[in-house]
Computed example of a mutant assay.
Amino acid sequence: MSTLPNGRFGTLLDRMLGRGPHAVTVPPMDGPLRPNSLLDQAADHVRAVSPDNLTSWRDQLLFSSGPELHALDPSTGALRQMGRMDGDVCAIAAMADGSALAALAGGGLRTVDEEPAAASLLADAERRVIRCPTALLAGTDGRMLVTEGSRDRLPSQWRADLLHGKATGALWMLDRWDAPARPVASGLAWPSGIAWHRDGSIVVSEAWAHRLVRIDGQGRRSVLLGDLPGYPSRIAPAADGGWWLCLFAPRSQLVEFVLREREYREQMMAQIPERYWVAPALASGQDFREPMQGGGIKSMGMLKPWAPTRSYGLVCKLDADFQPQWSAHSRADGRRHGVTSAAELDGRLYVGCQGGDEVVSLDVQAQE
């Protein structure tokens, strides 16, 4: 009777044969994730530089643009600047009392609806600052969840965190917004989205692990949705009890291969500017020095929608059990890429496309 390879020999054999965790295959976009051009066809849009952290707040759409906060009135389309923080805004949460909080790169926490803004610091009981907040989620009881993308890097250094290959992210809970953070889970691969499951557990999107995991009250983890074809980001509630999942970049065989070549990665990061790394991007096709150019992408001088691409636009509708139902895309030949956040408001889905510097909106009922 033959036995399956295991231990160090099995790992070496998997690496030589390119199988198991060492495979460089990428799941296709099919079924509910079948590509379309819904994001590029959306006529309603607002121009904004790198819009992020879209949040429904006081019948308005609140979002960030670097350190700036903006509010969009969906009934009139009027856009106004709410204020400017003392650092880039990395996450926004609407609180049960009608206020809102913004988390800043470096660990700052600021109120949105007060002048001057009340300030606090995201830190644990040992005063270690949570410098890389990626998502906030407020509970009805005043508690708040915070995801920390990486223990070692800032939010802007997400490419370096992916290429270094260490899962140092964490999930924290605050009993009050100005209280010390308590650890809930650690060893997460760039967690960047949070949601409450209907059974009371917590759902977290792990970008570098390409999955959604559920974390129960005892800290046990189970995979709800795995092997996604892109890197998941924020999770937003849908009006029908489901969810909206943003995927900010596509996976590719080239990147998967590079992630398995440590020496090449280290030399690339040391010798080449970051914008030219073989890594995902929020926008692409703007510089001939980018990887994945030339005949591999264009045919007869035309960029095809099915061409390999470093950037993509994708938001997926999930049901109450976090399973995909349908999705809206901006493909390789589109420009509404880098979708990191979305919010549903008054029957419309607002999608922040950082790569295209736009907030677009879709009629939800027309797509279902």
Rank of each mutant, 00 (worst) to 15 (best):
L303H: 12
G338Y: 11
A283M: 05
E68M: 08
A123I: 00
G347E: 14
L61E: 07
R260C: 03
E68T: 05
G334K: 08
A167K: 11
T111I: 07
L109M: 12
A185M: 03
V360G: 02
L303G: 04
L38V: 09
M1W: 04
G108T: 04
S205V: 04
A189S: 15
E274I: 01
R8V: 14
G108K: 05
A270G: 08
L318K: 06
G149H: 04
L245R: 02
K304P: 08
H45E: 15
T168M: 05
Y350V: 12
A78K: 13
R110A: 09
P27L: 06
P116Y: 10
G226I: 03
V351R: 03
M302A: 11
R335Y: 09
D88M: 09
D178K: 04
E274Y: 00
S311K: 02
L174I: 04
A23T: 13
G242Y: 00
W306D: 15
D14Q: 15
A91E: 10
Q365F: 08
A105C: 10
P183H: 00
Q157F: 00
L212S: 09
R151V: 01
D30R: 13
R15T: 02
A94E: 09
G31T: 11
L54I: 09
S252A: 12
R8W: 12
G20Q: 06
L69W: 12
L318W: 09
E290H: 03
P32M: 04
T147V: 13
D363H: 10
L109A: 02
S233M: 01
L228W: 03
